[in-house]
C-alpha cells in the first residue's frame, strides 16, 4: 500500500493552499486532515457564497469544488469563476455520468473526480493540476491514466505524483504502449515501434523490459493492472485506470 506517499510532502506542494467547497462538512474535514498530512493547507467552505467570499479575501493555489452545492450549481459556479480567475479547479461529483466529465472540463474545470474517491487519487490529481499550472503550456504533453502520468516532454513517468525510475528504452516502450492504450499489441508490433530507439547496453527481450516497467509503475507487479499480458498474443496498456 502506498499510504506513505500521503505523509511525504514534497517541495512543490509544501505550501499549496487549497479551498474545498463542499457542503458535506464531515467529508471536507476528513479530506482536510488527509491532505494536511500530505503538506497541503486546506480551507473549507460549506456553500458557494462562502467560497466566493474566501476567494476574494485570500489567494488559493487550487480549488476542490463539489458539483452539488446547497446554494448553487457547481457547474455554474465554475463557469462564473473562470471569467475572472484561472485558479486550477478539481470538480467533485457523485453523479458519475460520463456527460458530467465532458461538461465539467468544457466549463473550465481542470480535472474531475467521482465520489466515492480514493484520497490518494485526489492528492495525485491535485498535485498534477498544481504542477501543470506551474509548468504552463509545456505540461500539455503529459498523458494521464488515473494515478499514472507519462510526461512525454520530460520523458518521466510518475505514479501518485512521484517519479518512477525506468530507463530511457523502457520509457519508449511504455510510451509506445500508452499511445495505443486499449489495443492489443503483439511483441513484433512493439519491436517495430521501437526500431528507432537506441538499444540498452544489454539487449533483453521485451518481456524482461515489461517486467521492469511493471515493477516501477504497478501497485502489485504480480497482478498487473496497467500493462497486461495476453498469453500468445501480446500486451495491452489499460486505457481506463480510474478505478
Amino acid at each position: 500500500m502506498m499510504t506513505s506517499g500521503a505523509r511525504r510532502p514534497d517541495t512543490e506542494t509544501m505550501a499549496a493552499r487549497i479551498l474545498m467547497i463542499d457542503d458535506d462538512a464531515r467529508l471536507a474535514g476528513m479530506v482536510q486532515d488527509y491532505l494536511g498530512g500530505a503538506g497541503f493547507r486546506v480551507t473549507v467552505a460549506g456553500t458557494a457564497g462562502d467560497g466566493e467570499m474566501m476567494l476574494k479575501r485570500e489567494a488559493f493555489d487550487a480549488l476542490i469544488l463539489d458539483l452539488m452545492l446547497p446554494d448553487a450549481d457547481g457547474l455554474d459556479f465554475c463557469r462564473r469563476l473562470r471569467q475572472s480567475s484561472d485558479v486550477p479547479i478539481l470538480m467533485l461529483t457523485a453523479r458519475g455520468e460520463p456527460m458530467d466529465r465532458v461538461v465539467g472540463l468544457e466549463l473550465g474545470a481542470d480535472d474531475y473526480l467521482a465520489k466515492p474517491f480514493e484520497p490518494r487519487e485526489l492528492q495525485a490529481r491535485l498535485r498534477a493540476i498544481l504542477r501543470r499550472k506551474g509548468a504552463g503550456a509545456a505540461a500539455a504533453d503529459v498523458m494521464r491514466f488515473g494515478r499514472l502520468e507519462i510526461d512525454r516532454g520530460a520523458r518521466i513517468v510518475r505514479l501518485d505524483g512521484e517519479e518512477r525510475p525506468i530507463t530511457s528504452y523502457q520509457f519508449a516502450l511504455l510510451l509506445a504502449l500508452a499511445e495505443r492504450a486499449g489495443r492489443v499489441l503483439s511483441r513484433d508490433a512493439l519491436m517495430d515501434l521501437l526500431k528507432g530507439e537506441k538499444l540498452e547496453a544489454f539487449d533483453r527481450s521485451v518481456d524482461v523490459h515489461i517486467s521492469r516497467i511493471r515493477a516501477a509503475i504497478e501497485d502489485d507487479p504480480k497482478k498487473p493492472r496497467r500493462i497486461l499480458t495476453l498469453r500468445g498474443t501480446g500486451y495491452v496498456f489499460a486505457k481506463d485506470q480510474d478505478r
Binding site: 499510504t3 458535506d24 467529508l27 488527509y34 457523485a94 466515492p116
Partner: peptide, 24 residues
C-alpha cells in the same frame, strides 16, 4: 435517481476517505 445517487455516494465517499485515514 440523480439525487439518490448523490445522497448515497456522499456517505460512501466519507467511508472511503475514512478507511484511508485509518492508515497503518
Amino acid at each position: 435517481l440523480a439525487n439518490a445517487s448523490h445522497e448515497l455516494r456522499t456517505p460512501l465517499a466519507r467511508i472511503s476517505v475514512a478507511a484511508s485515514l485509518l492508515g497503518e
